[in-house]
């Protein structure tokens, strides 16, 4: 799967980022690489808040069912 990093830059100076397609903690390592590259270009990051994606979010990005989603679907099917 390809790696994607998307930044949305608001007019109030706030930046939102989304890392997708990374394995394990590779995304955090890549975030550090980006931080260093930005630093060399004169942009310092402040007030950084990170939220790790849930297994469900990751599974939906790569088109795989998680165990809990399969379980939910099986239960719905059983109830019907």
């Amino acid at each position: 799967m390809q790696r994607e990093i998307k930044f949305t830059i608001s007019s109030n100076g706030e930046v939102e980022s989304e890392f997708a397609g990374f394995h394990g903690e590779d995304c955090l390592e890549e975030a550090e690489n980006l931080k260093a590259a930005l630093r060399s270009l004169g942009l310092r990051i402040t007030g950084h808040k990170i939220v790790m994606k849930s297994q469900e979010q990751i599974a939906s990005e790569i088109g795989e069912d998680t165990r809990s989603e399969r379980h939910k679907r099986a239960r719905v099917g059983h109830e019907n």
Binding site: H23, C27, L28, I58
Partner: peptide, 10 residues
């Protein structure tokens, strides 16, 4: 794993 984040800059 992948992640979401928010930050400001100087």
């Amino acid at each position: 794993m992948s992640h979401l984040s928010k930050f400001k800059t100087e």
